[in-house]
Design a protein around this nucleic acid. Structure first.
Length: 197
DNA sequence: CATATGATTCCA
DNA sequence: GGAATCATATGA
């Protein structure tokens, strides 16, 4: 089983489209003598400075320089003083689009009993930390492998989690998940749209 | 410089 | 329900 790496074009699109495409894709991290692979089952799209829930709303700072940089990079930040969150920067340089990976299913190398449901847990299970902030997904040991064309996924859609402060933007249907996965970070009870890919 | 708060998780 | 825990943003 190998995991072909996604190339530049894969990342050069709106965060909503990439967030949908990433459901069923693999997140691969090659550690020293060890490989860990997770099948992504939950994502959220953050759509740049005009998205009140996005970190890009504050403009260019030390924290957001990766987010506002070129697409195809990892944007990793600390939330609540304790958890690292892994995002994929996308669309175009300076546009501030990114997709947060919120949950996955362990496939290879993740220790039994280690869960990947929840953004902090995904990063922890794959040993992704803020040191990976800015990491080039098109070249390094950490990368994305697109969902195999043969693999069908039923995709659910809902509002994003934990962004109530963003006002009207918090209502946007920019969270995507695999309806058939038991590894989604919270029950998709608030699903407001469904589809198949 | 001081302070409020969050793209969360864990424990009681 | 509430704590843990700290980088960042914001305002004095």
């Amino acid at each position: 089983m190998d995991y072909p790496r996604a190339a530049a074009a894969y990342f050069e699109r709106d965060a909503r489209h990439l967030a949908r495409a990433l459901i069923g894709a693999r997140l691969v991290h090659q550690l020293d003598g060890e490989v860990r692979v997770v099948r992504i089952v939950e994502t959220e799209a953050y759509r740049g400075p005009t998205d009140a829930a996005s970190h890009a709303r504050v403009g260019l700072t030390r924290r957001t320089r990766t987010l506002l940089g070129p697409p195809g990079r990892a944007y990793v930040f600390l939330v609540y003083g304790m958890h690292d969150c892994f995002n994929v920067v996308c669309k175009g340089e300076g546009e501030g689009h990114a997709v947060l990976v919120r949950a996955g299913e362990p496939i290879v190398g993740v220790l039994p009993g280690v869960r990947c449901d929840g953004p902090g847990r995904v990063a922890k299970a794959l040993s992704i930390t803020r040191e990976h902030d800015g990491h080039d997904l098109m070249e390094g040991s950490l990368y994305v492998s697109p969902r195999p064309a043969s693999e069908r996924v039923k995709i659910g859609v809902s509002a994003r989690v934990g962004v109530a402060y963003a006002g009207a933007m918090a209502e946007k249907p920019w969270r995507f998940f695999d309806r058939d996965s038991t590894h989604v970070s919270r029950p998709p009870a608030s699903a407001i749209g469904l589809g198949t890919r």
